[in-house]
Structure formats: structure tokens, C-alpha cells
């Protein structure tokens, strides 16, 4: 790797579109190496679309996503899947599959016709389940699990791919608050172990607490990016979400905490 290096994963001058609906044009995005990057923004701002493009499941209409300086589309599929993992927003657990079997499917890019199931696969699957706290659930059916457990199983499957870069599309959506924090703590652990983690999140406070690098998007553009402590201000929140608010230090972590302005303050505080 050169000294004056570009991050491993970048998108250059991206035009992103579904059929004829254009989501973003001229978008430049870079994921700092070793960061826990979180993409935030209002609904339909293009954050999931951007993540999908970075994960090569959406092919840009123009521009290119580069991984290690090479167009992501020119990477051999399995080699790419050993470098870049994705937890998609909607995955389907085949009916009647057990946790261990689902996690084992994460070994797909490491296997081939001549290289079938190995002791190494066995070990990695066991470690992935242990790391996500689902080892005791190994023989349970995925259908029977709670939302939080199921999400941890999917993350375990992505971990079993053993990729240095891991992208997660709204990993906390549909979970209750305790499970959201549990998943985010897990993501932070994965980041601390040395992975580059990129997640799309809905909750700005979660983003501000967990991210090392925040990307705020609106209408297909990046409005601001950088460490949450520098980026998250009342002006930014107003600009991105059209939400008047105060930003105070999080009493737990000191990171920015957004407190939305109360419309009915007078009523609430009336004697």
C-alpha cells in the first residue's frame, strides 16, 4: 500500500438510480480505513442506496465504486465476498433452517467444488456464533428466534465470511431499544477488533454515540461528514432533518446528543 493512500473503499462521481428514478448524481463518498462509519439522513435520502452501491449489489448508472483502487465490478465475485461483507436489509431465512446452518452459509466464498466443508470452516462458524452470542442457539430454528437474536445470527453469517470490511444496512430497524443497543455494541466490538464497519442507521443519537466517522445525507447529497463531535450541530440537524433541536453532551459518553425542540413546552411546564 502506498503512503499517500486513498481509502480502500470509495465511490467516485456516482449516479445511483433504480430503473428510471434517480436517487443521486455526482456523489463522491469515501469510507476511512478502520473507521466505524455511519450514514444518516431522512427517509429516502439515498443512504441505503449508497450503501448498496458500495456493496456492489446496486450497479451505479455512472461513476464507479473502487475497492483497493480497482472497480468493484471487475473483482472476482468470491474474492470480493472475502473482502467485503454485507448485511442486507431484507434477507430471507429459508424455512426450517437452523442457526448453525445459516451461519455456515457465510462460508460460501471460501468454498468451491474442490474445497468443500473443512475443519477451518467449522472453527470460523463456531467463532462467529460465539462472537455474536448465538452459540447456545446453534441448533434452534431461525424462524423461532426473536428479532434481536435473528439479527445477531445474520451478523454471525456475515462474520463467517471473514471480511475486513463489513457493511450493515439498517441493522437496528424493527428492534426494540435494548436490542438496538445490543446490536450497536456488537458492531462497536467488531470495529474495535480491527474491521472497517459501515452502517446505515435511523437514529441520529445512536449514530453520534457509536460512529467514528459520520456521513449525513439529504436528497442524494452528502451534507456533512467527519467525526460526530465536529459534525453534529443544531444547524446541521435543522438542515438535514428540518428538525429544530438542541445539541448537548451525552451524559454517558460526551458525544453529541440531539434533543428535539418541544413544540408544546409551554403547556408541559404550565403550573
Amino acid at each position: 500500500m502506498s503512503d499517500n493512500k486513498q481509502p480502500r473503499l470509495v465511490g467516485e462521481d456516482l449516479t445511483l438510480a433504480y430503473d428510471r428514478r434517480t436517487i443521486a448524481t455526482g456523489l463522491d463518498v469515501a469510507v476511512p480505513d478502520g473507521s466505524f462509519t455511519v450514514i444518516v439522513g431522512p427517509n429516502a435520502c439515498g443512504k441505503s442506496t449508497t450503501l448498496r452501491a458500495l456493496a456492489r449489489v446496486l450497479r451505479p448508472a455512472a461513476g464507479a465504486v473502487l475497492l483497493d483502487g480497482e472497480r468493484i465490478g471487475s473483482w472476482p465475485a468470491k474474492k470480493l465476498a472475502r473482502t467485503l461483507g454485507l448485511l442486507p436489509q431484507s434477507s430471507i431465512a429459508p424455512e426450517g433452517i437452523t442457526v448453525a446452518d445459516l451461519v455456515a452459509r457465510g462460508r460460501y466464498p471460501h468454498q468451491g467444488l474442490l474445497r468443500q466443508w473443512s475443519r477451518e470452516d467449522e472453527r470460523v462458524v463456531g467463532e462467529s456464533m460465539a462472537a455474536t452470542g448465538v452459540a447456545e442457539l446453534a441448533d434452534r430454528y431461525v424462524d423461532e428466534l426473536s428479532g434481536g437474536q435473528r439479527q445477531r445470527v445474520w451478523i454471525a453469517m456475515a462474520l463467517a465470511q471473514q471480511t475486513p470490511i463489513l457493511l450493515l444496512d439498517e441493522p437496528t430497524t424493527y428492534l426494540d431499544i435494548a436490542h438496538q443497543i445490543e446490536i450497536l455494541d456488537l458492531c462497536a466490538d467488531l470495529h474495535e477488533q480491527g474491521r472497517t464497519v459501515v452502517a446505515v442507521l435511523h437514529d441520529l443519537n445512536h449514530a453520534a454515540r457509536y460512529a467514528t466517522h459520520l456521513i449525513a445525507m439529504r436528497d442524494g447529497d452528502i451534507v456533512a461528514e467527519g467525526p460526530p463531535g465536529e459534525v453534529v450541530t443544531a444547524e446541521l440537524v435543522e438542515k438535514v432533518f428540518h428538525l429544530p433541536c438542541q445539541v448537548i453532551p451525552d451524559p454517558e459518553t460526551g458525544t453529541p446528543l440531539i434533543v428535539p425542540a418541544a413544540r408544546r413546552r409551554a403547556v408541559a411546564s404550565a403550573p
Binding site: W117, A138, D139
Partner: peptide, 23 residues
Amino acid sequence: RGSTRLSLTTHPPSPSAATRTAS
């Protein structure tokens, strides 16, 4: 930080966990 191949945990999985792996 780190290398491209990372260990997930410092604990080796218990043998019972290994044999439970469904495959």
C-alpha cells in the same frame, strides 16, 4: 489497524459448541 484476517474471539470454542454445528 489489524490484518485482513482477524480472529473473532480469544476463546477457543468449546468442543460441545463445535460438535453442535449442524453441518
